[in-house]
């Protein structure tokens, strides 16, 4: 492994090379081992300050970053949209500069607007880690997905990965597409034509609107959360129809190859995009994803936060 890590920021997978992605995954191997020790904490980022700056609500991603930072001995502050002064009209730039004036070393940003992490990275000295920006990218989620696939299947190149659901509005889907294609996987997007427009084919993936055609061929199935809490009425007629056409029901799960891996970035809508029994079945690696997310985020924080700036 001859790759060197020289980035202070992790903004997305589109900007990373295949070598860099593999470098993060191999670094994550080392950090995954730390989780099995009696003392699950290393001093790598001792004395560094990490701010979890979440301008859009999230519990699991924030918690995962927080725990990853604790295990690297960094000090952590959590700022969410409700407690931040963004609601008082302060601009994102001013908020970030204030955090920097407090000697923040690493800024983990979740934001509803695509490009917000890049905007900050261009304006602060601190490392900026994208924890999800709008419908753009969610690089650590895709890295943990890649890690989990590699762990289960031993490789990524040559695998056929189906990404199913609300692709249009999904940052998880975009980061996965970029990462999977760079590592040589074949990707098919599945979902209603309104949420999986044909324009995606120009990214180098296949598009299908018939889940039964794709399931028997897939080595990995990655189900996206259907965001029925948001206004999506103009995109599909309702959850009942979505389940009828695209839900991974028990019957449809029988179409899968025995070694096909089922993934979901969470939180799961049981009985909507995935049947409850299937989510808990032997092919499901949903909880492995959570465990691996910690290792991947430790690796990312170590790499971006560790280099001299």
């Amino acid at each position: 492994m001859t790759t060197r890590w020289t980035r202070k920021d992790l903004l997305g997978l589109r900007e990373l090379s295949a070598d860099e992605i593999n470098f993060v995954l191999e670094t994550a191997d080392a950090f995954k081992q730390v989780g099995t020790r009696e003392i699950k904490k290393v001093p790598a980022l001792r004395g560094k300050t990490l701010v979890n700056f979440f301008v859009e609500p999230s519990t699991r991603t924030r918690t995962s970053f927080e725990l990853a930072a604790f295990r690297l001995s960094a000090d952590v502050i959590n700022i969410s949209a409700t407690t931040s002064s963004l609601t008082k009209g302060e601009t994102l730039k001013d908020t970030a500069r204030n955090l920097e004036a407090l000697h923040t070393d690493i800024l983990v940003l979740r934001h509803s607007s695509a490009g917000a992490p890049q905007f900050l990275a261009n304006r602060v000295r601190a490392s900026v880690i994208n924890a999800g920006d709008g419908a753009h990218e969610h690089p650590t989620q895709a890295l943990l997905d890649l890690y989990t696939i590699r762990e289960r299947r031993g490789k990524i190149a040559g695998l056929h990965v189906a990404i199913i659901g609300d692709v249009l509005f999904s940052r998880v889907a975009r980061s996965n597409i970029f990462g999977l294609l760079k590592l040589g996987a074949r990707v098919t997007l599945v979902g209603p034509s309104t949420l999986v427009p044909r324009e995606f084919e120009k990214l180098g993936v296949e598009v299908s609107h018939k889940i039964e055609d794709v399931l028997p061929k897939a080595d990995v199935v990655n189900l996206l959360r259907i965001q029925h809490e948001r206004q999506r009425r103009e995109y599909f007629p309702g959850l009942g129809e979505y389940i009828r056409l695209f839900g991974l029901t028990k019957e449809r799960a029988k179409l899968l190859k025995p070694d096909c891996v089922i993934m979901h970035p969470g939180p799961i809508n049981r009985g909507v995009e995935i049947d409850s029994d299937v989510a808990d079945g032997l092919q499901s690696v949903i909880l492995d994803q959570v465990t691996n997310g910690l290792a991947v985020r430790m690796a990312v924080l170590y790499l971006c936060g560790g280099i001299a700036t």
Partner: peptide, 9 residues
């Protein structure tokens, strides 16, 4: 944090 290149873990 003091090195331009990180040791590989």
């Amino acid at each position: 944090g003091t090195r331009a290149e990180l040791p590989v873990v």
